[in-house]
Design a protein around this nucleic acid. Sequence first.
DNA 1: CAATGTCTACCTATCGATAGGTAGGCGGTC
DNA 2: GACCGCCTACCTATCGATAGGTAGACATTG
Lengths: 188, 188
Amino acid sequence: MTTTDTRETIMKAAQAAVQAKGYNALSFRELAKAVGIKSASIHYHFPTKGDLGAALARRYTDNAVGYFEQLITAPAPVEAIFADYVAVFRAALLNDNRMCLYGIMAAEYGDLPPEVRVAVDAFSAANVDWLVRLLGPRHPTLSDAALRDRALAIFAAIEGAQLVARGRGDITLFDQMIAAYRAAGLMP
Amino acid sequence: MTTTDTRETIMKAAQAAVQAKGYNALSFRELAKAVGIKSASIHYHFPTKGDLGAALARRYTDNAVGYFEQLITAPAPVEAIFADYVAVFRAALLNDNRMCLYGIMAAEYGDLPPEVRVAVDAFSAANVDWLVRLLGPRHPTLSDAALRDRALAIFAAIEGAQLVARGRGDITLFDQMIAAYRAAGLMP
DNA sequence: CAATGTCTACCTATCGATAGGTAGGCGGTC
DNA sequence: GACCGCCTACCTATCGATAGGTAGACATTG
């Protein structure tokens, strides 16, 4: 197995574990078992747990940014693009009732190594930036600050809906909350 | 020190620790140190960590329900009562950037003992019930189901705002998100 | 072309620290 | 004298991390 393959496999398994049980509950031994190597070999690829956590968050953000970029350049109405955006968060729940990596790491924020924190922060910033770009043309009267507040509020509402729906273990609740947000006029 | 006092002290310290770092990061030794007793003595009051976690969540819900009941019976406009409701979640952030106990435990849901899970679920149910009672008269045209969806969406949005504001370490962001929700018409 | 050195990607074995949990003793109060 | 509240002392399991080694790929050099 090449370096890249194993590194990828580790990150995939680690991300799944964090999304299911949190960063704190991620153990090198369990992770190694899932990958099929020894825990010492994880340290070869990621010297410390903080390195792994930060790499996870960075890759998560990069992947999201890439996909969002692809979405926003598509010749589709804002409503359709936004629906695809929401579907990303919905997909996490569909995947064995897992959380968005950001959401679960944000909850554990107080216990996160500094390098993981900055990587986590980058995800929310990227989402807000993207939402501002998407919604800006739709709200020409809003000030830049008000637009950013709106974007942040939308992002937070989606994260919250995920958090609550996950606790209930019912993905239809997520859909209903998104529908309620839309009905209230918070989202397109 | 009487049983009640120590038990109370343990629960206070435990709640603060969980709200700051999560249930998983709560350790009997650190907790004992904070209280000023030995970890074995914690086990006297709470045989297992699950017992402690469940007791924490139950008390948290009970306290909230009691306070909410007091709020809703006050002769005040819905807007004022709702503002007091939101202030409860704001207060957690003010208290050393901590999370609502529900929010942080919901995020760790996948790694929670069953008895803790049911106690956590009770909190969201209590909030939805209360919000339905508060907002019902305000939305006479909404069906029962739609009203519950709206209540759940409001609760989730507040939790999400707390989660995101906490990551940013900026309580004014929480206020701005709540303002954005209100401006959009999601909340009174 | 063969010997040498270096690199990758793992391994075994172990470290000190800490996790939750338990058995039994000791002093104080009713 | 029984019970309550807390203690000392300990257990097993697991944590992240480290040391040191090895098999094989690959390039370098005489």
